[in-house]
Every structure is written in C-alpha cells, then in structure tokens.
Amino acid sequence: MTDSTRDPGLPLPARDGEDVSFERTIPGSTQRLSSRTRERIRAVDVLFEADARGMDELAVLEERLVRTAAQTALPDRAAHLVRLHAEHADEIDEQLSTHARDWPLRRMPAVDRALLRLGAAELLHDVSAAERPAIIGEYVKIADVLSTDSSPRFVNGLLQRLADVADLLG
C-alpha cells in the first residue's frame, strides 16, 4: 500500500504542537443506519457537544431544539434520550466509572464517553431486559461509525457489564 492510498487528504502538522487547519471533513456514512440509530446519533451529538463546550446537556438540548446544526429538526426520541441521561447523569457516571475498571471517564475518548453515557441511560432506565442486547448492538454499531477501531469492543464490553448488573442496580 503506497502512502497516497492511505492518505485521506488531511493536513498534518509540520512539527509537534503546530496548529492544523482542516479544509474539509470526511463524515462517516450513515446511509445504512436505521432511523432509530440515527436518532441515537443525534442524541450522542448533543451529549458530545455539551461535554466539549463544558455546558449542561439540557442547555445544549434546548439550543438544538430551537436551532439545529443539522438540516432536520432534532427528533423527539433523541431529545428524550438526552433528558433521560440528564435525569440520571450522576448515577450513570458512577456506574461507568465503577465498571470501566482502569479507564476513568476523563481518559476515554469524548465520543466513547457520550456513547457510553447514552447507552447506559437506555440500558438502566428505559428498556426491558429482553431489549438490552439489541440496544448494546446499536451502540456498538454507532461506535464503529463514529469512533476509533477499538471503540466498538470497548463499548460492547462496558455496556454488557452494565446490562449484566442492571437488575441488581434496580
């Protein structure tokens, strides 16, 4: 494989610490994703933006309900998921920190953190035990589209741990 076939056309810094100016972006393909998956991605976007901006996710949600960065309005299901996470945020972060073992939340990639928070909210507070495997699969699929190569396995493992203890957590 030559360098030209591996190069996605993104600028690289000439030396360490130099700012890079991006001229274009390469979005992940969402064509093969179901509408439910796309709604989850929109909710992940809100959590990610809130984390990146250091804002409360409900404040970002309200901004997105008034003015969205996407071409379509924020789906009701996405707003529901963001509100669900906000309602249980402290408990969810505690459970993720406990079950992630050697991976503190602050060290996780921001996209993974948003995925895991939203996935945990759904698993622990929104779905029946029978629906949990499908929900985990959805978040693994989203991690595959939005995050690093190792993220799907990490997301799967951590959400599976939460699903295994969900009934004990009450």
Results as ranks from 00 to 15, higher is better:
137 G>L: 10
115 L>H: 00
146 L>Q: 10
138 E>F: 01
120 A>L: 06
126 D>P: 00
117 R>T: 06
149 D>Q: 13
141 K>I: 13
154 F>S: 09
140 V>Y: 12
150 S>F: 14
155 V>F: 06
127 V>A: 01
120 A>H: 02
133 P>E: 04
142 I>H: 04
143 A>E: 02
148 T>M: 07
113 R>H: 11
149 D>Y: 10
151 S>Y: 13
134 A>C: 00
119 G>T: 04
144 D>E: 15
141 K>P: 00
135 I>D: 02
154 F>W: 10
144 D>V: 01
108 M>L: 15
134 A>R: 07
117 R>Y: 06
133 P>S: 04
151 S>F: 11
152 P>Y: 07
137 G>W: 11
113 R>N: 03
136 I>Q: 02
132 R>N: 03
124 L>R: 01
135 I>Q: 09
148 T>C: 04
111 V>A: 09
154 F>P: 00
155 V>Q: 02
142 I>Y: 03
111 V>F: 06
111 V>M: 14
108 M>Q: 14
152 P>T: 05
146 L>V: 07
111 V>H: 00
149 D>M: 09
148 T>R: 13
135 I>H: 02
125 H>F: 15
120 A>F: 08
147 S>V: 09
144 D>K: 05
126 D>I: 02
135 I>G: 00
133 P>T: 06
129 A>H: 04
111 V>I: 15
121 A>S: 12
115 L>N: 00
138 E>D: 15
136 I>C: 03
148 T>I: 05
112 D>V: 09
133 P>R: 01
130 A>T: 05
143 A>D: 10
156 N>D: 15
120 A>C: 09
129 A>P: 00
118 L>I: 09
117 R>Q: 10
119 G>Y: 10
129 A>S: 10
109 P>V: 09
130 A>H: 04
130 A>E: 14
134 A>Q: 12
153 R>I: 11
117 R>N: 02
